[in-house]
Design a protein around this nucleic acid. Sequence first.
RNA 1: GCGCUAGUAGCUCAGCUGGAUAGAGCAACUGCCUUCUAAGCAGUAGGUCAUAGGUUCGACUCCUAUCUGGCGUACCA
Length: 587
Amino acid sequence: MLQKIRNEWKTIVQNQIDEMAKGILGEGADVPELTIQVPPKPELGDIAFPLFSYAKVLRMAPNKIAAALKDNIESLSDKPEGELILAGPYLNVKIDVIALADVLYKTIKENGSEFGKNKQYDGKKIMIEFSCPNTNKPLHLGHMRNDSLGMSVSSILMANGADVQRVNLINNRGVHICKSMLAYQKFGNGETPESTGMKGDHLVGKYYVKFAQWEKEDDTAVDQAKAMLVKWEQGDEEVLKLWKTMNGWTLDGLAESYKKTGVSFDKYYYESETYKLGKDKVLKGLEEGVFYKEEDGSVWIDLEDINLDKKVVLRKDGTSLYMTQDIGTAISRHDDYPFDSLIYVVASEQQYHFKVLFHILKSLGYTWAKELYHLSYGMVNLPDGKMKSREGTVVDADELFDSLASIAKKEIQDKERENQVDGLDKTSEAIALSALNYYLLQVSPTKDMVFDSKKSISFNGNTGPYLQYMGARISSMVRMFEEQKDEYASIEFDSKYLTQPEERELIKSIALYPEIVEKAGKDFDPSVICSYLYDLTKLFSKWYHDNKILKAEDKNVVVARMGLSSLVLQTIKNAFPLVGVTFLESM
RNA sequence: GCGCUAGUAGCUCAGCUGGAUAGAGCAACUGCCUUCUAAGCAGUAGGUCAUAGGUUCGACUCCUAUCUGGCGUACCA
């Protein structure tokens, strides 16, 4: 909406510049394209056109160009609503916000939850892979960033018109899986999640830790684990039985964590089922000369010409590697769901892996390989440094979630709002989840971040709970307004009663929302939406604090302000799910 | 060594594909609850945007070099 207004003005100004250039330089002058900016202060208008770059072409000082343009444009009979402002070398426009508010009101009332969506990826099939846990331990904070990103980006893509398929790849085979199995076999005494009351993934994780301890005392431990893997690959009944049992425990536990944190997938892939698929493709590629064989029998690809070194794709004993399996998985995925694009949400430490993977798939002749994208995200560190499993500083996902929820719960109780909220536990968990998602998503994905659990649970400032609180405040007003509806029955929303400076800013901010969704979709970046939401709610908060809404004296003003509030409400309701924030009617 | 990536206020982060005095939050200090939920609002203080050059009318933004940190460079995943 704002975009449209900006472009209208741009066309007008650009045309005038072209005219001036023609007058001075004659036909065919090379005139640079106009850039559009936002003035730093509201008093300076809403749209800015810097004119520096025309000084040389037109042989005039930018201020004079601005003045001349202003005169010329004002004399035009056909121009958009708005007012031109001279600001030195800038020509600015103050748009007609009242008119914008009317359009906005109509649009949002008509479109409701559809407001903000666009067709950028209309008809595109996009597959997105994320989470990809191992079945030897529970989820930790690192997975949570991955999951938050995966869920958020896929929601954002849907809002941009894409047909999205969320997939998970369960890493359920390998030596590391055998380690927890072996430790359980040796020290488990037949424990089960039922007998211990432990969540399955935590129970398995306990034996993974146990293995690490045992490994220090017995140097045959790793060899025993490797031997177990061989047995597993040979289909040894006893090993498979244990594997199935323990995998089941972990997967049950993971399912519970996913459910709690609102993570879901359209399809699960299991490494145990896909690891052999890549092998055939590699052998075929070997025949075609994409790969070569070393004397020891291992298969390689030489990527030195593109600065990616040499990479092994099949072990000398013929078994598959991570790379082998990923080749197969990608191919089978494209068979399952012929995507236009596949996004891998994987930590930045695997950038090299994906460069190589994508290159290999291209070399094997898959044309869709150029549509593969590694959404690389940075590490989650702690205020004291890195998370290290050896030092026991890894933040467990379930524990973190539960502790956040209990803090939220206490807060509700302290404020004596148990009866106001829709279920104490339900609300506390919704607050905890939103706090977590928002904290993880507000940082640009590519950057490493510091996760301070103390700050994450703080409900002040730029946090999920703050956003939820604003949503709840507006909802509360809307409810009260509904109760007194009869008093206002004869009054229509009229934007001309929105005269406060904050109201101007609010209207502009709401109008910006569709562009924000588009940008987030284009960049695969949820943090864009986070910043936007915080700006919008902060703006609302100030306005709401300084002005009476429901209790304004003039009923026309009440209706206009409630109308504006409802637009803010609809906008944040639409934006919240894109960044994993739960909307609460009351908190 | 080589490759990738980052370095903005004490801390955590923004900074719109170069533009008008670099913005928030937290922490610190200070105001504001007989008034629509104070999980709030406002104010004060805090910066030679790692350093040095370069390109440009103009650089936090682009280029080069240097310093510092992270990651990778496994027949682990």
